[in-house]
């Protein structure tokens, strides 16, 4: 088991390093190892004194690669947490209506014509968080001790936000606004800049680290309410805390990248396939797998469109579906 854990860690570390290097190097202005060294050397020079490779590196490639990595890590980790907390292999960050809420928020900003991409990001974040608050209020008013209460509350809020999104699409200007809404709901890292990546890191990094730190309560919660209380863990308190942290991170990520489907669902299954267990370092493996998936999907999104940026969800779904089918067919009991 220890040997398998070590091999998994090495494999993922090498894969992530390779994908990050490729992501930093690939684009309409290719960079190489020497350019990376120059970029690090010229980091503190005034912008006017920086060379073109340095400007491309710090202005475009690094924020985009870091955002892809962070968002993927967030989605993979939170997917693992959701699947363990709800005891369902189909659970994903979309479950609590965050994605739908964030989509509604972003679409509202687009239709109202408020500001630029920053306002859209802010509205998306508020939409995602508002969904979480509504879900928690609904769970509380339903006396929610059961996992299914969270799932049902998530479905209710998600459906309401989707209905609102459809209304907004109906009244949106078909020439300008409708396309922007659709592009946002399909997810893309094309518009990522350091101004967006830095606040994302400030929100997601602490949330991700706290969740990784709290991996034991996640394990205990997956054993059920009675076992939790018998072993001294308050399930309602910890479930709410962990779900809030996960939703905060996913919401912040969705606000920057748009809705990216399937990473949160598929990464925990791949992690389980690689690591076999759901204790110990499982959540860290979920994070690494999520990061690798999104880095690879973003590379494909900017490389395969003949110069045009493609929505990243096309590739996460295209890669995720066959993987899920393979996992289903190789009789992993919890994927059935």
């Amino acid at each position: 088991m220890r040997g398998r854990s070590f091999c998994t860690a090495v494999l993922l570390a090498v894969l992530l390093a390779a994908l990050m290097f490729t992501s930093l190097a690939t684009g309409s202005y290719p960079l190489d190892g020497d350019d990376f060294v120059t970029a690090v050397r010229e980091l503190f020079l005034p912008r006017d004194a920086q060379s073109m490779p340095t400007r491309v590196f710090w202005g475009l490639r690094f924020p985009r690669t870091a955002t892809a990595l962070l968002s993927g890590v967030t989605l993979g980790l939170c997917g693992g947490v959701y699947q363990m907390l709800f005891g369902s292999p189909l659970a994903s960050p979309d479950l609590t209506g965050i994605a739908s809420g964030a989509s509604f928020g972003a679409a509202l900003a687009i239709v109202m014509g408020i500001g630029g991409s920053f306002a859209r990001t802010g509205f998306a974040f508020l939409g995602g968080m508002f969904s979480l608050v509504l879900v928690l209020l609904l769970v509380r008013s339903a006396g929610g001790e059961r996992k299914s209460t969270y799932i049902l509350a998530g479905i209710v809020i998600s459906a309401s936000a989707d209905a609102g999104l459809m209304v907004l699409k109906t009244i949106a200007d078909p020439e300008r606004q409708l396309a922007a809404i659709d592009f946002w709901t399909m997810g893309s890292l094309a518009a990522v800049s350091s101004e967006k990546a830095v606040p994302l890191a400030w929100i997601t990094l602490p949330a991700v680290l706290l969740i990784l730190l709290f991996r034991r309560p996640v394990t205990m919660l997956s054993l059920g309410t009675d076992e939790c209380l018998a072993a001294g863990l308050s399930p309602n308190l910890w479930r709410t805390l962990l779900l809030s942290l996960a939703t905060l991170a996913v919401s912040a990520s969705a606000a920057v990248t748009g809705v990216i489907g399937f990473v949160g669902l598929i990464a925990p299954h791949i992690a389980r396939f690689l690591y076999r267990r759901r204790s110990g370092g499982y959540l860290a493996v979920c994070s690494a797998v999520g990061g690798a998936i999104l880095l690879a999907a973003d590379l494909a999104a900017r490389s395969l469109g003949n110069g045009a940026e493609l929505p990243v969800s096309i590739f996460t779904v295209a890669a995720g579906v066959p993987v899920l089918i393979v996992l289903l067919c190789t009789k992993r009991e919890d994927a059935s």
Partner: peptide, 9 residues
């Protein structure tokens, strides 16, 4: 009731 959580030993 005893948990049957997959992935936990």
């Amino acid at each position: 009731d005893h948990p049957a959580a997959a992935g936990l030993t």
